[in-house]
Design a protein around this nucleic acid. Structure first.
Ligand SMILES: [Zn+2]
Ligand SMILES: [Zn+2]
Ligand SMILES: [Zn+2]
Ligand SMILES: [Zn+2]
Lengths: 159, 159
DNA sequence: ACATCACATGTTATGATATAACGTTCGAGG
DNA sequence: CCTCGAACGTTATATCATAACATGTGATGT
């Protein structure tokens, strides 16, 4: 079941493309795209869904890339820190960014039944939130938006 | 340090008012506003900040209201489920809703330095997120917005 | 070549958050 | 009364994340 976007699609090229882009960007910014980091990003791209850290770790362990939690958390810290991966707070899970490199406010649509996640595009909210923040003197540095509901498939089943 | 709203204020009346309102609503909706549930809400109102479940539990335990995690998690489930309290995903923490009863999309401003939290008002996003969801057939049931940044006090200190 | 330094990794242990499961209590409604 | 469901008490365990410290490794300057 492919989840992101809630649509079936062949994404073998997404993976190759995204990895190549990440590699290039790391080169440009002198970041070390080490085997563990690369493999974690690959796994998230392959699975194309939100995954828990320990779920990723199992795969790494099976491949001999490390079996202790810090291995995967370090890789995730790097990937999240540089915008290759997003953390989904509601789920304590991680998912590959669907448009890395672009400066964006990630917004997620999370199905409460099948746990599928889609990353939607949003604009930086110039509305009430920004206004409220400005009025109180709060400086917003980062916004996350997470919506819960039913994906098309589950909505149909439930109906 | 009072955090919500990032302003000092006397809120003894907020507490009494909020508790009375909760009591009334529970009566109207035949919900059981039990001692543990009431006390947890009171604690969150008194402290007027985001608190971890175990932090709340310590207070309950000191007062003889229970010492095991399920005690506080059950109370929080009830309070969150009925909108008296919000869970802040980024922090694994809980805070009393500042305008319970009203149907609203909570949005939080979270200071990354002092961890103060303000609940801002937002409107249900009729913008791109809603549009993107509608296009894919996703049914949004609930949205949370969490912004990280610097509160007025910390912004000043940092500057 | 060698020292040095920054960064990444290996490993052990522990901390922090949350829930499963099961038996008991207690009050509302028949 | 009796029954039922909701809340509660208790034990144990699951799940998520980080601290701390030792080790390796490659770039840089001398
Ligand atoms: Zn993204
Ligand atoms: Zn679904
Ligand atoms: Zn609220
Ligand atoms: Zn602050």
């Amino acid at each position: 079941m492919d989840s992101i976007g809630f649509q079936q699609h062949d994404h073998s090229h997404c993976i190759a493309e995204a990895i190549a882009a990440a590699e290039e960007r790391c080169k440009a910014e002198k970041l070390q795209f080490t085997p563990a980091r690369r493999r974690v990003l690959e796994i998230l791209l392959e699975q194309h869904r939100a995954m828990g850290a320990y779920e990723i770790l199992e795969i790494l362990a099976a491949e001999g890339l490390g079996s202790q939690p810090p291995v995967v958390y370090r890789a995730l810290d790097f990937l999240v820190g540089h915008g290759f991966v997003h953390r989904i707070e509601r789920m304590n899970a991680y998912t590959a960014c669907t448009h890395p490199g672009e400066d964006h406010v990630p917004a997620f649509l999370i199905c409460r039944l099948c746990k599928a996640v889609a990353e939607a595009e949003t604009v930086l909210d110039g509305g009430r939130l920004g206004k409220a923040a400005h009025e109180t003197g709060f400086v917003i540095e980062k916004i996350v938006v997470e919506a819960e509901g039913l994906c098309p498939a589950c909505a149909e089943t439930a109906a």
